[in-house]
Simulated assay, not measured.
Amino acid sequence: MASNLADPQAGVAAPVTDRRGAGTIGPTLSVLSPVFVVAAALVVHQFLPTEQLPPLTWLDALPEWRHPYPVALALVALGALLAALAHAVVPALRAVVRHNAPLVAGAVGVAAVWELVTTKMNWLHQPFFPGPNEVLGAIIEDRVLLLESAWHSLRLLLAGYAVGATAGLVTGIVVGWFPRVRYWAMPALKFIGPIPATALIPLVMTIWKDSFTCAVALIGFAVWFPMTILTSSGIANVRLSYLDVARTLGAGRFYLIFRVAVPAAMPNIFIGLFMGLGASFLTLIVAETAGVPAGLGWYLSWQKGYMEYAKMYGALVLSAVFFSTLMTLLFQARDRVLKWQKGVIKW
């Protein structure tokens, strides 16, 4: 045993070296995974025969290498290589690159499977299921109209969401703080709240003649109910010890509500904001198909009427990016406001 401890050539260092070598292989494969998946997607795109017959579009005048799908794959591969270089050179970026590289690889893999089952194998037929190249071409072709529609949808969504969140916050605070108001209001909320906002389209169209105001009212109603319920629940369940300490220090009702109860109820309030945002997305698309002269929902309905399914799928892709961006911004706001929850509650 003594000779093993004294001998620097003993077989203890070898496993450490092996573990280090194995530890570098996993992160390297993870960082370079988008490049490998892009290569497989390009092989599928370039060498498998095309069984689906796409309609004639502006893409037919371009050479194959200038089509949007292979160009997008090449840009993803270039970005992945630059990210791998940054991973090797900048230690601060390593965690971000390792986290996002597999997600990018997964998205490219989904696009490759999409092309395989549509354009290459024709398991899903035209015109209802176009391939990714055709959908990207439709997005590029209608990019101006799509961006204009996204801008109109953003204005409408933010207006309705602000109205519903503000009304829900006020109603929730009143219902949660005052027991007498809660006694009368909760039965009414349970009766009115579950009504789908889209079922109120005929009613709001008779009250307001302007289609934008009608859509704002529908979105606001969809946001108001979950915001009210969760805010009132958070206010009503604030620990009595917090309120007792504040009263002992001489706090009045206004201070107790807005400096004690509302901050303590912020986790519930943010859950209401998230639920309201999801409800607003659903209501937005339906509201825009009911008379709003612009927006992503209007664009979807219009293109479906002309059986332009590639443009319809392009609008769906843009809607997904649009909605996920708003959801991410709300997550970041939640993380900043509820920073004290880190390490206490799993997010």
Rank of each mutant, 00 (worst) to 15 (best):
F274L: 04
L200T: 09
L330I: 03
P194T: 06
Y161N: 08
W302D: 15
T57D: 06
F274Q: 13
T57P: 06
G252K: 05
G79S: 11
L330H: 02
V223E: 03
R94F: 01
A111Y: 05
A112W: 07
F323E: 10
I173N: 03
Q126R: 13
V135N: 02
I285K: 07
A185H: 01
V96G: 15
T283N: 11
V286G: 06
S33W: 02
G164F: 03
F47A: 15
G23P: 09
T17G: 12
I235R: 00
G172M: 09
F191A: 13
W184G: 07
L42W: 09
A112P: 00
S30T: 15
D18G: 08
L73V: 04
D7W: 08
V286W: 05
S301G: 14
A80H: 05
L284A: 09
V71H: 02
L318I: 15
L116W: 08
H45K: 09
V163C: 10
W298A: 13
W224G: 08
T118I: 06
G176P: 11
A162E: 04
W340L: 05
I139K: 07
Y242A: 05
G164N: 04
Q126Y: 04
V292D: 01
I235E: 01
P102F: 12
F254V: 10
G11W: 11
T328R: 14
L78M: 11
A294D: 14
L75P: 03
L316V: 15
A39S: 06
A10R: 14
I257Y: 05
A246T: 02
Y306K: 02
Y242L: 12
V245Q: 08
W347K: 14
A188V: 15
Q303M: 10
F274S: 10
Q46Y: 07
A197Q: 06
T328V: 01
V117S: 03
A40W: 13
A77V: 04
V35P: 06
Y255C: 13
L273T: 15
F191N: 00
A185V: 12
G297Q: 09
M186D: 15
M275R: 12
P54Q: 06
F254I: 09
I195V: 14
L218T: 05
S30F: 06
I235M: 02
Q52L: 08
V262R: 01
V31R: 09
L147H: 01
L318N: 00
L158C: 09
W58H: 12
V96Y: 06
N133S: 15
R94K: 07
S233W: 01
A101L: 01
G137V: 08
L326T: 07
L85K: 07
G272E: 12
R155A: 10
T24V: 11
Y255W: 07
D60V: 11
G11N: 13
L156W: 03
T171K: 00
F322H: 02
A162P: 04
V108P: 00
L230S: 02
P8S: 13
L145M: 12
T118A: 06
F274K: 12
A199C: 06
L124N: 10
W208K: 04
G131S: 08
P8I: 03
V216A: 01
A111Q: 06
A236M: 03
A251S: 13
F331N: 09
T118K: 06
A107C: 08
R253E: 12
S301E: 09
A279N: 14
Y183K: 14
D18C: 00
V174T: 14
G164C: 07
E148W: 04
R155K: 13
A167R: 01
F258C: 10
Q9D: 10
P187Y: 02
A188P: 01
